[in-house]
Amino acid sequence: MTRVAAPDEALVHAAIEQVWGSMLFSAAEPWPAGVAPEFETGLQAQIELRGDWNGRLVLTCDSGVAAQIAIAMLGVDPDEALPEDDVHDAVGEVLNIVGGSVKGALGGVLALGLPGVSETSASPASDECLVVAWRGAPVFVQVVPDAA
């Protein structure tokens, strides 16, 4: 049963800004209006929230963006080629921390799952996502409630 409102865009954006700022040392600017965000293939991270609201957060970004996020998070040389597993792990942890911030802000009784990361070529529906800019490239974050 859902007892708290779904996380809205402002709440999710605030959580992303907090994580970007403290862990990635970068601002999470909203994607510019009127510019269609492009996506071909990349990574999709998902994490579930269970309890007074049930659903999941889904973060999708280009593979190159995922690698840059991992490099920023780990503070390694920008030219360093990180192993694929490390990139998956870093992107999953970013979403885990965003999910934790969202959970804390939602209130109610909620449990956070463990993040899962996979490769995807399915383009996110940008009108259903919060899109933020990472160094000029889009990062898509979607709140997906369980089907009623």
Partner: peptide, 9 residues
């Protein structure tokens, strides 16, 4: 921590 990235940080 189950995240290698977080262990590294």
């Amino acid at each position: 921590d189950d995240s290698r990235a977080m262990r590294r940080i």
